[in-house]
Simulated scan of single mutants.
Amino acid sequence: MTTPVRIGLIGAGGIAGAHVAGYLRNPETVTFAAVADPVRESAEARAGDTGAAIYADYHRMLADADIDAVDICLPHHLHKEAIVAAARAGKHILCEKPLCLSFDEAREVSAAVEDAGVTLMCAHNQLFLPAVAKAKELIDAGTIGQVYEVRTTDSFYNDFDPENMGWRAHAKTSGGGELIDTGYHPTYLLLHLAGGSPVEVTAMLATHRLTFMEGEDSATVIVRFDNGVIGTIVTSWAYEAADSTERFSAVGSLGSLTSDGTTLSYHVRGEDPVVLDLEPVHEFGAEVAHFARSILDDTRPLHTQKEGIEVLGIILGAYESVRTRAVADVRALEPVR
Rank of each mutant, 00 (worst) to 15 (best):
V118I: 13
M121H: 12
A131R: 02
A131T: 00
A133Y: 03
A133N: 09
K134S: 01
K134R: 02
E137S: 06
L138V: 04
L138M: 06
L138F: 05
L138Q: 05
T143K: 06
I144M: 00
Q146E: 15
V147E: 07
R151A: 00
R151G: 00
T152G: 06
T153L: 06
T153R: 13
Y157N: 01
N158Q: 14
N158P: 00
D159V: 12
F160C: 04
F160S: 02
D161I: 10
E163M: 11
M165R: 04
A169N: 08
H170M: 04
H170Q: 07
K172R: 13
K172H: 10
T173F: 12
T173D: 15
S174T: 10
S174V: 05
G176I: 12
G177T: 10
E178N: 07
L179P: 09
L179T: 09
D181C: 04
G183S: 10
G183E: 12
Y184D: 06
Y184Q: 01
H185Y: 12
Y188L: 00
L191H: 15
L193P: 00
G195C: 15
G195V: 15
G195K: 15
G195F: 15
G196S: 14
V199F: 03
V199D: 12
E200W: 08
V201T: 13
V201C: 10
V201Y: 08
V201F: 12
T202N: 13
T202W: 13
M204Q: 12
M204L: 07
A206L: 04
A206N: 13
L210K: 03
M213N: 01
M213L: 11
M213A: 05
E214F: 06
E216D: 14
S218P: 04
V221N: 08
V221Q: 01
V221I: 09
I222N: 14
F225R: 13
D226F: 09
V229Y: 06
I230K: 14
G231R: 06
I233S: 07
I233N: 05
W237M: 08
Y239G: 00
A241M: 08
S244W: 14
T245H: 04
F248L: 11
S253H: 05
L254E: 14
G255Q: 13
L257E: 03
T258W: 01
T258M: 08
S259N: 11
S259K: 04
S259Y: 09
S259D: 10
